[in-house]
Simulated assay, not measured.
Amino acid sequence: MSGLRFVFLMFIFFVSGCSHASDDGYTSGDIGGVNHTSSAINYVKVNGYGGPNISPFGDGGGYCCVQLPDKWKPGLKAHIEWETDPEPYAHLPPLGTDEYRKAYALHKAKYQQHSTIVDIPQYGKERCGLTVYFLPCNQVKVTTVCSGYGTPNYLIKEPLKMKEPASCPA
């Protein structure tokens, strides 16, 4: 492993609270996602691991694994990386043709890569991995709750189908 990659991975573990500097235990959980936007999520990574591709206004998950401390501590964070396809329903020429390869290269050039560090909300003994919520303006929220999206006690209240505003906050 190259030295730069090792330093980056150590930074991610430090930022995410995944360091084993104390004798606290950790539990692995699946990575999931809910997409509140009209773009496709080509992939999502949490602390370098993961994750699902998610259709516009859809969900996905079951990818292993994210490590969460058994006891939540203030300042616990996750590094989220994802790629979006702003035109997921683009019509391309027939697969396998030269026209397709050219059109796909132009389409793929529009993919956008994003990265952010988010706070992991407080949790108790019950937690079910980490679910990442993709909101307009490339905003992200995460939860560790076990109940499903849309249930009364769920933390994320934003509607599933959200429109991009005319302009996003700086």
Rank of each mutant, 00 (worst) to 15 (best):
F11P: 00
C18R: 11
F8P: 01
H20G: 12
D24Q: 10
S16R: 01
D23C: 03
G32S: 12
H20C: 12
Y26W: 14
D24R: 06
G33L: 05
F6T: 10
H20F: 15
A21C: 08
D23P: 02
T27Y: 08
T27Q: 15
V7Y: 14
C18Y: 00
F13R: 15
I31M: 02
D24V: 04
M10C: 12
S22M: 09
G32T: 02
F11N: 12
Y26N: 06
F11Q: 12
G32M: 01
I31A: 02
I31Y: 02
F14N: 00
M10T: 08
V34Y: 06
S16G: 14
G17V: 05
F6L: 13
S28Q: 15
V7W: 15
S22C: 14
Y26I: 02
L9F: 06
V15E: 12
H36F: 05
N35E: 04
S28M: 15
D24I: 04
Y26L: 10
S19P: 01
S22V: 05
M10Y: 11
S19V: 10
F13L: 13
L9V: 02
S22I: 01
G32Y: 00
G29R: 07
V15M: 15
H36Y: 03
D30Y: 11
V15Y: 13
H20K: 10
A21T: 07
H36C: 04
D30N: 11
I12C: 08
N35D: 01
D30S: 11
N35M: 05
D24Y: 00
S19H: 02
F8K: 12
M10E: 12
D23W: 02
V7L: 14
G25V: 02
T27R: 09
F8Y: 13
G29A: 08
